[in-house]
Write a protein that binds this DNA or RNA. Structure first.
Lengths: 602, 602
DNA sequence: GTGTCGGCCGCAAGCCGACAA
DNA sequence: TTGTCGGCTTGCGGCCGACAC
């Protein structure tokens, strides 16, 4: 089993007797926690090794956590030992969350990975089979309008009532009983359970509306009943995934202000001190604490544009489903603050076309590749099958001493090449422009020269050398890119018709190296499809908050672009405003990314 | 007027248009804020100089803010410039609070004080007369059971309705109108105001219960209506002072975790950076940010045991009252962490005997001396009438360089003598025991020799010289005083009959210098009065968490003691266990202090 | 002058089976 | 099998003057 049940319960008692002044919320029932968290949640095991992704953590916290561009941000991924796992539930919302206590162990893990000595750690995550076998009788029902209306009670599905509730005396005319169920906080709720109506059905009447009101349940939310092996009834809720209104109030008020959280964690990482992560499994679509095995395995899989994959997800009726899609882009989400991060580095298109409802940026460990990579035009980037991990040493904590050629980094150097190929280092050129004094990627270019795209057909969008980047700088200045004061907060001004009059076409196959700039449309209006207004209503920004203000100079052209669900084929020519506008208005959900392929013509 | 009304309102608008991401709560209406805060609140003026008392701040935060004994705690009092004042109201509870932005200006203020150049700054606090003249028509009513019952509406006092509400057409049978009032957050509340019944009276009916429910008002809380000069109606609430349940949830969840707040402020003080203080005027019985003038004036008053004083307080019907009392003890509350702090250094007894309901420890600026100091046995400690302030340099930030005799500190040196006389440096001797390596007071003793008590009859409990303090150290060791690991958290073990068998008597008048140790009974059981159990149930600690474990050696005796509401007269002899136990069980409320007067016999 | 109560009214909470998807 | 509805009852929210302190 993943988590030692006894140890958790011991800690529960321990905290219960601790002084009140500590203000530690009590830990909650393990099974109920997992039932509320959903079937897909894999919680790291105490004592195991995980990969912590600060970028995902920041997204989880709601971005408000990072004030500005800080040089003391943590590296994009950190190997950590899980010192402690505590399960909690929000007092106000009943949302389940976990507190993970982590200690950075970068060097140790990296060394053992290189020595191949981390095989035993692959069992860090819970085996789901074991957990489901332990999971007792339970059911989960999404509430209907009738269930939440003040007009009546709760209609219990027949199977569920027979499975979880004590049996009724069906001889009687209208058999009934009182049910007592404890919620996540141990609070008892009493319901009148009656079997009546024509045809007969199970209902919860008296007591039900009080529960609905207190928990502020609405139709679409789900309740779950769980009968423990001791016969005790437990009761949890899973709220419907609602549109996030600005900042997540729960995380904010429960754990205090997020302001400076990441700075504090950064300090704890660099000094190997223990730090705590509050993780709300239902508010994030992608995990930012990954079991080591899952992480290394995902990086071992080859990633390529056009690659097909499947992913597990939780359907609306809380069942585990699978869906499939295709990778349509690979690149950094935030090359300014976290260059070479794997976090959501994949742009995907879903087969069922549910673009808006589902996340379109995934991390490699979110997906499982499907055998037949439909790669006629796919541009695959292979990786060593049994990669020994060494992270991109953009941060001093991870890097070897400058100029020192360590023999054990030969393999990792090759890995760097691959990663850079995946990451479209055009963004590095961007960094060189906005922050000319700091050129983090220069060092690595000099140490590991970029492979020639012609000799390495896998790399589709080859990197520019430093000289080319200087020339590119001139191009961008022609575009009047203004660095924002706070790169994390994009402008909110109206967009001055960015693409109108641009000649959009793909570069000829023999053209010189092109580059990829990532844009982030911040406000999209799907109603503007096909009209000229689509470009006005959707603001387009350079990643990091820089705004393209006007058309490029004549010596630069946008040769292509790619939206969330559409990447042009290599030879495809995309031309004119209309189509660009249409595409902008069409598939562009808030937060999705636009890849524009720019290059100077030969 | 104390606060520039215009500037506050400008800032309000400024913040309203600021991006939401900043998460700054909006500032609130100045008059309404003051109405809710109560008549006694004097808020420092922007730009003025104040004295900040970290010890009081810590108490305000609920003690949970300080983890352990830290050497980087701020000094006990810090001169600060008020950079900004913002008025807020808690979104959930409507509690008013202020955010003060302070910058430490110790040296500057100290210098100007010594030069006598701070006269102009005495107007730093608001003149209350001006404010009350500006204060518009308002009334405040404590809610009755009928007011808060679902059965009916709100009974408006006749004067109040005529004063604040628009006039009704009394010709009609049952004249009524709709009132619209804005609360602290600008939210509008609508009430039906009707004049009916036999005899006629003003009532708020429709809309009232919604307000009561939303604000979670209970009988005992107070509502206040305020009619602005523009005729606009405003509405505030003052909740009844309830028993604090552990930590103040409001401060904790509104401003994030308090953990480490003081450490951060300490850093800001030492580096002269701006820092913010959140101040909830209704949750603290004593201010920890004092206008400079009030502070210096209070230290200019002579303080003595037996001195009578008066103090303003807010009665239950929110009116301003005065009560009188007598000083029964003077000494440090926490000599371990904040030696020589003025915070709550006065132990008082109230004339009306309301020991339990009212704070029995006050700071000098809380009280106003009454002319006739009933000083037959009063032991007054005079101070220079026009004192130039220089603080006790226990902290390096305040102290002059060692060995450097600065001419401008001559006057301040004299002030030190006075302060030391007030502070019963017996606590310094304590420090010398628990932390032998740090003897903060030694430096000043050597520089400014303690005056002979015989030549200075004003000093009742004269300070010991360093040699005497060493001898005293031996005495205390004989008592087996064990320094606690965490002085902020007292032991909770049973009390091992501390006074049993002690001979308690006052020293003869001609005896050698005695000293005062302060004890803090932590758990008191008033039911044990007169029985032998009283000593067992009430734990007694040395202030700072040190515990007296056993009887003193025969060369030391407890010559007297004083409880919260009782200090023995100079010649009074208090003897035996029984009486000690009885007194312990009698007047000893949790948190009150026991002064035991110890000395070695001649 | 105002706190509390009984009387009274009306609405909506909430229990029921009918009916249909 | 179960979601929604109309019918029906009931409890309480809430407006009123009576009465008393």
């Amino acid at each position: 089993m993943g988590i030692d049940l006894n140890s958790v319960e011991e800690e529960e008692e321990e905290e219960a007797s601790a002084p009140v002044g500590l203000l530690q919320p009590p830990t909650v029932c393990l099974e109920l926690w997992h039932a509320c968290a959903g079937p897909l949640i894999l919680l790291p095991k105490k004592g195991s090794v995980v990969v912590y992704l600060p970028q995902g953590h920041l997204e989880h916290l709601g971005e408000s956590a990072a004030a500005a561009y800080r040089h003391d941000l943590p590296p994009p991924q950190v190997f950590c030992r899980v010192v402690d796992v505590k399960l909690h539930a929000d007092v106000n919302t009943d949302e389940v969350y976990a507190r993970l206590s982590l200690v950075a162990e970068n060097e140790e893990v990296e060394r053992r990975l290189n020595e191949g000595g981390m095989e035993g750690e692959d069992e860090a995550e819970e085996a789901e089979g074991e957990r489901s076998s332990v999971m007792p009788h339970m059911f989960c029902k999404t509430l209907t309008a009738s269930d939440t209306s003040t007009h009546g009670g709760f209609s219990v599905p027949r199977r569920a009532a027979e499975d979880c509730f004590p049996p009724l005396d069906y001889v009687q005319q209208r058999p009934s009983q009182e049910l007592v169920a404890k919620d996540l906080h141990g609070v008892e709720w009493r319901f009148r359970h009656i079997y009546r109506g024509q045809p007969r059905r199970h209902l919860l009447t008296t007591g039900w509306s009080a529960f609905v009101n207190k928990k502020k349940l609405v139709s679409g939310d789900a309740v779950l009943f769980l009968r423990g092996n001791d016969g005790e009834l437990r009761l949890g809720i899973r709220r419907a995934v609602q549109l996030k209104t600005g900042t997540p109030a729960g995380a904010l008020y429960t754990h205090g202000s997020n302001h400076g959280v990441l700075e504090a964690i950064s300090g704890a990482i660099s000094t190997k001190r223990e730090f705590q992560i509050y993780y709300n499994p239902r508010s994030s679509s992608s995990d930012f604490v990954i079991p080591l095995g899952k992480f290394t395995k995902s990086l071992g899989n080859p990633l390529s544009i056009g690659m097909r994959f499947k992913m597990r997800y939780e359907s609306e009726d809380s069942a585990e489903r699978r869906c499939t899609g295709m990778v349509t882009g690979i690149g950094d989400v935030d090359p300014m603050r976290w260059p070479s991060s794997k976090w959501r580095c994949l742009l995907v298109r879903w087969d069922d076309g549910l673009t808006s409802s589902r996340q379109n940026r995934l991390s490699p460990w979110d997906i499982e590749p499907i055998g037949n990579a439909s790669g006629s035009h796919a541009l695959s980037v292979p990786s060593s099958k049994r990669t020994k991990i060494c992270l991109h040493p953009a941060n001093a904590n991870f890097s070897a001493p400058h100029g020192a050629a360590r023999p054990d980094l030969v393999e990792s150097a090759r890995f760097h090449k691959v990663l850079q190929g995946q990451e479209f280092t055009g963004s590095h050129a961007l960094e060189g422009i906005t922050i000319p004094s700091s050129q983090p990627s220069t060092h690595f270019r000099s140490h590991h020269p970029i492979p020639n795209p012609n000799t390495n057909p896998h790399i589709t969008y080859p990197c520019m050398g430093f000289v080319e980047s200087l020339r590119f700088q001139k191009v961008l200045q022609g575009q009047e890119i203004y660095p924002a004061a706070y790169p994390t907060r994009p402008f909110h001004s109206a967009y001055p018709t960015p693409t109108r009059g641009y000649s959009l076409m793909m570069p000829p196959q023999a053209s010189s190296p092109s580059s990829v700039l990532m844009f982030q449309p911040n406000l999209c209006n799907s109603s503007g499809e096909g009209s000229n207004e689509s470009a006005e209503t959707g603001n387009v920004f350079l990643s990091g908050g820089n705004r393209v203000k006007e058309r490029p100079e004549k010596d630069c052209r946008l040769f292509g672009f790619s939206l969330t669900d559409r990447i042009p084929a290599r030879n495809e020519v995309v031309k004119g405003d209309g189509q660009m506008d249409k595409t902008l208005g069409h598939g562009c959900a808030t937060g999705s990314a636009l890849y524009a392929i720019c290059a100077t013509p030969l």
